[in-house]
Design a protein around this nucleic acid. Sequence first.
DNA 1: AACATTCAATGAATATTATTCATTTATTGC
DNA 2: GCAATAAATGAATAATATTCATTGAATGTT
Lengths: 296, 296
Amino acid sequence: MLEKIHLSIVREVERQGSLTAAADVLCLTQSALSHSMKKLEQKMGTDIWLREGRSLRLTQAGKYLLALAERLLPQLERAEEHLKQYAEGARGTLRIGMECHPCYQWLLKVVSPYLAEWPDVDVDVKQKFQFGGIGALFVYEIDLLVTPDPLYKPGLRFEPVFDYEQVLVVSRQHILAGSSHVDPDQLSEEVLITYPVEIERLDIYNQFLMPAGISPKRHRVIETTEIMLQMVAGGRGVAALPRWLAEEYAGKLDVVPLRLGKNGIAKQIFLGIRESDADIDYLKAFVELARQQAIA
Amino acid sequence: MLEKIHLSIVREVERQGSLTAAADVLCLTQSALSHSMKKLEQKMGTDIWLREGRSLRLTQAGKYLLALAERLLPQLERAEEHLKQYAEGARGTLRIGMECHPCYQWLLKVVSPYLAEWPDVDVDVKQKFQFGGIGALFVYEIDLLVTPDPLYKPGLRFEPVFDYEQVLVVSRQHILAGSSHVDPDQLSEEVLITYPVEIERLDIYNQFLMPAGISPKRHRVIETTEIMLQMVAGGRGVAALPRWLAEEYAGKLDVVPLRLGKNGIAKQIFLGIRESDADIDYLKAFVELARQQAIA
DNA sequence: AACATTCAATGAATATTATTCATTTATTGC
DNA sequence: GCAATAAATGAATAATATTCATTGAATGTT
């Protein structure tokens, strides 16, 4: 009744702007699409498009179908790929979602031994999700979520794999460089460099600056850790990063880590999976490996 | 390539136990199913079933397809119904999920004026979800979630609609009936009656008894509010319920509400929707009506 | 051990459905 | 007003799904 082809047509017409153009992409004729959709409209008893002049505008029903298509087609397409992977003897693809910028460096350390141990599993890392990491897990967009922000909900399972301290990184020439720790007000005249994330999600804001009612002089956003640390080393600002990351770079660049507040900011990284995937061997193995890597 | 029919076959074979039986249900012949699946297996290059004697056992690829089928087919089926509803001039079905037992009584008060105001919208209430209410929202199993437990995540939007106090309900003959409030230790010799929910999710446990290290003498589980209150009135135990609910029954049954602890337990009901649904008029209207009802 | 059943697979025949081709109609831009 | 573009339509055809009739293998029965 409602078939995959209908969803494909609705999606492609939306992308291409016309039946004719969509037909080209789908390797069919305009006539074929027209007939297919006409039949569907008749069966369902409702129009999908309003014929306005020589173009089509989605009806409410059509919009509904479009949303359905955008949601289901990727899952079907992925399924086909997945089946072909099985055919090649591969186990599948482990799709990892990252909700935590600096975790990327840590992840790399886990992924390389993992790939060696599981030659028939591919790893794919995604960083952008329409509905956030949790949503991506729920809708099977990813299989594993790396996040500092776990969520104990039915259907999902989170496990801490790594503890670390979030520290301030400053240039070795910085006035604060020798201090045992920094207080919030010492940052009021600094340029703070962070990853491009909503402010509320930054620990240095909600656990350090905000409680003290302090704002930095300026806030700069930078995508990559390397450049961020280059900037810090050059005295262009300060950044908040995991201590292990800061120490790794301390050899190469003129940067030093500083404790945030007297007690420091303690953080954890969690791995989240769907409960129903809990006994997939190659997934379990990844979590296990991550935990070991964290200890080493 | 991978079509709806393949998913239907995999699901139905699993349900019926054989190709032949599945064929009957699907109004096709055994041969048709065999040919269809064979073609898929050839295209994908992987078997879906292992032929064991005269029966079929799913391969790993097959299990994957089964999971996909169980996930996608309901959405496709729902879509067909939905389109037909559009055809009949109806607006659609508002599927409400409930994660909060006593909310049911409250919901009824909102639903009846809503149905009157929106004659072309159907309302459907669900209470059981494989992946919890949040999961159900994410996978389009429901459109609206009624819960005391909101979750501010991208893709979802929660809104408080109703404040109330959670109180202890006891029989009018109970020794505590005259007290201004109850303390945790006064429940150590009581039978506590609750809805069938995991203990950790009950406020009376995690906000009242557990912090004090107290357990009730016994814990009984009852599905319906009426029976629960009948039991309480009969002196068979005590229950924790919203104050407004308790007061509603106080006229009919010999029960009295008691504050839990000196300050009482304050609760809120939230309505959650998908962000992408935020401008669907009949959904907005429901949330609006719920808020008004709460004030009245 | 023989026989009847049950089930899936298979190849060829057939029915069904999807797609194209050739046109028509309507709209838009020039 | 004319060319260009887009969708719809009906008939012809191609593609495909489905059935029919049969086989072979496994299971159950006497």
